[in-house]
């Protein structure tokens, strides 16, 4: 059994976990959500194991590099960071139902890695530009940032779906109180922002040691800065102008659109990051 197989199985495990969460919400069965968490942790373990196996396989093939070098590997790692964040949040805030808006994202990223026709799971050698210790620091911090924003996006959607008036029987009313969701969105955004900041900085220091310039306005760099600006706006609006709730949820959604474009969209534009 190789890492691709382990990661394919992980995809189904994650899929099952999000199915359980959605089921728990729909049928009001707390037990399903509890089971969902257990399955999610199993998936996370499989995901971790798959990444480590792939790392080892790359050494066996004689390439010897961390599995962060192409679209497939980055998506698998993106799922890992989101799962990591989500498990942490559920543990800390003791809210189960929020998994409905967190777990599907974890499943979608890894499913996209396995199923998209233009994404290959072959282990390839590193091109000279990527051969650096900065690779690991840069990728881990960037993807922790992306994951924070992704989970924050899930919670923002949840906020917007939550009805304002209290109607106990209504389906959407089973979500946590708006003040808790609002707090959750904010927490995710500050984690995301801190890691995106470190991600941009490590990338910049790396670029300076590889090319002799810490900033070159390459489209991926520029889009990460655009993302940074949007979340900086969000933080100023919330901390200094007292924005909360719906308005912050919308800014967080716009921010996540910028994250998606930084991640996927930029690959269709020419630039230094064309390999990822």
């Amino acid at each position: 059994m190789d890492s691709s197989m382990v990661l394919s199985i992980t995809t189904f495990v994650y899929g099952f976990a999000s199915f359980l969460y959605i089921g728990s919400w729909t049928f009001k069965k707390e037990l399903m959500a509890k089971l969902g968490m257990i399955i999610l942790i199993l998936g996370f373990a499989g995901n971790t194991f798959g990444i480590l196996m792939r790392w080892k396989e790359s050494y066996e093939m004689g390439y010897g590099h961390a599995p962060f070098s192409n679209m497939y590997e980055s998506l698998v790692f993106f799922s890992w960071t989101m799962a990591f964040f989500y498990i942490f949040v559920e543990y800390k805030y003791k809210e189960r139902i929020i998994g409905v808006f967190g777990t599907p994202l974890i499943f979608l990223a890894i499913a996209y890695a396995s199923l998209a026709p233009n994404i290959h799971d072959k282990i390839t050698p590193l091109i000279p530009a990527l051969k650096s210790n900065w690779l690991i620091a840069h990728v881990i911090t960037c993807f922790l940032g992306y994951a924070g924003f992704a989970v924050g996006f899930g919670f923002s959607i949840m906020y917007l779906l939550k009805p304002e008036k209290k109607k106990q029987k209504f389906f959407w009313s089973r979500l946590p109180s708006t003040s808790i969701i609002d707090e959750l969105v904010y927490q995710m955004v500050i984690f995301g922002f801190l890691f995106l900041t470190i991600g941009i900085i490590t990338g910049s220091v790396w670029a300076n040691s590889a090319w002799g310039t810490y900033w070159s306005w390459d489209p991926k760099e520029t889009w990460s800065l655009i993302t940074w600006f949007i979340y900086a706006i969000l933080l100023h609006l919330r901390m200094m102008r007292g924005w909360h709730g719906k308005r912050i949820a919308w800014v967080s959604i716009i921010g996540f659109m910028a994250v998606l474009f930084t991640y996927f969209g930029v690959n269709y534009l020419p630039g230094l990051h064309s390999y990822l």
């Binding site: 306005w217 489209p219 520029t222 889009w223 800065l225 655009i226 600006f229 949007i230 900086a232 706006i233 100023h236 609006l237 200094m240 102008r241 910028a258 930029v266 534009l269």
Partner: peptide, 19 residues
């Protein structure tokens, strides 16, 4: 702070052009 938000917005929006 309003000015800061407006400037950050314009920096973000115009940066898109060059990409």
């Amino acid at each position: 702070i309003k000015l800061a938000v407006v400037i950050l917005f314009f920096l973000a929006a115009t940066s898109i052009i060059g990409t």
